[in-house]
């Protein structure tokens, strides 16, 4: 894609990218562990607030709970989503492909916040509805991109692999999945980024996350809480996105 850029500036750009990612990770860790040290700053910014620092839980706990929610749901989504994508692209499941594809497309028009709200009557309040909503929603981009990624493998390549005497499972593991990996990871990236956002709203249905101080601040009119939660969750999303960008590039072919 960037074929016009000669080698040296490209390396320099990569080094700058590394530096930026490193700085953001340091900032994320430092803010998670050291938000309490910033209390004087928040006191100065919001002199009217009696308590300008969220103390009902440590930010480390909230961060770990948030990452836990996203990790658990994304793992389930990836396993189920890739399996479903594989099933409908094999001869045995090909009949289901149009149905699964349109389901994934229609499902993604559902607003994530509405899906979260609908999970409440099914699973009650707390951790469970959030995990259900995140998992269901996260499935769709993974399925869609698995089908799309496997679809990009040229028929001639498959023909050649068969001609070389490879078995169906060898073709899958050594040819199809490696070639489709970049697109599959792009799907996982979309799913994880959406889930980081939806997990934030999960605190309205009683799941602990970085949204807890944010929502508490909105409800209690405490802007300092809002900023503390929003900064951390925003940084988490940006760092995660940059890490996935890197992973995607790692699996790119012919670039």
């Amino acid at each position: 894609m960037n074929g016009t850029i000669p080698g040296v500036p490209r390396l320099r750009a990569a080094a700058a990218g590394n530096l930026r990612l490193g700085a953001l990770i340091v900032l994320l860790v430092a803010l998670t562990l050291g938000m309490a040290q910033l209390e004087p700053l928040f006191r100065a910014l919001f002199p009217d607030l009696g308590n300008p620092l969220y103390r009902r839980d440590s930010f480390l706990n909230l961060m770990l709970a948030h990452i836990g929610l996203v990790l658990v749901s994304s793992l389930i989504s990836v396993v189920v989503g890739v399996a479903a994508g594989l099933f409908v692209t094999r001869p045995a499941g090909r009949e289901f492909e149009p149905m699964v594809s349109s389901l994934a497309a229609i499902g993604q028009t559902f607003p994530p916040a509405a899906v979260l709200a609908i999970a409440v009557p099914l699973a009650g309040f707390g951790f469970a509805p959030t995990i259900i909503a995140l998992t269901l929603y996260g499935l769709l981009p993974v399925i869609q991109n698995t089908i799309a990624g496997l679809g990009t493998v040229p028929a001639t390549t498959l023909e050649a692999a068969r001609g070389n005497g490879m078995s169906a499972s060898q073709i899958l593991m050594r040819v199809e999945l490696p070639l489709a990996m970049q697109v599959i990871i792009a799907g996982v990236r979309i799913s994880v980024i959406i889930n980081i956002g939806t997990a934030t709203i999960g605190s309205t249905v009683g799941a602990k996350s970085l949204g807890t101080p944010l929502i508490a601040g909105l409800v209690g009119n405490n802007l300092a809480y809002v900023i503390q939660g929003a900064l951390l969750v925003g940084l988490l999303a940006i760092v995660t996105d940059l890490l996935f960008e890197r992973l995607e590039r790692h699996y790119a072919f012919g670039d």
Binding site: I193, G197, G211, L214, I215, L218, L223, A230, A237, I238
Partner: peptide
């Protein structure tokens, strides 16, 4: 522009409150 797509919506809403106020 991609950075905005990445940020959770509620965080952007929240961060806009203070400057707008």
């Amino acid at each position: 522009l991609n950075v905005f797509q990445t940020l959770p919506s509620i965080a952007v809403f929240g961060l806009l409150i203070a400057p707008l106020a």
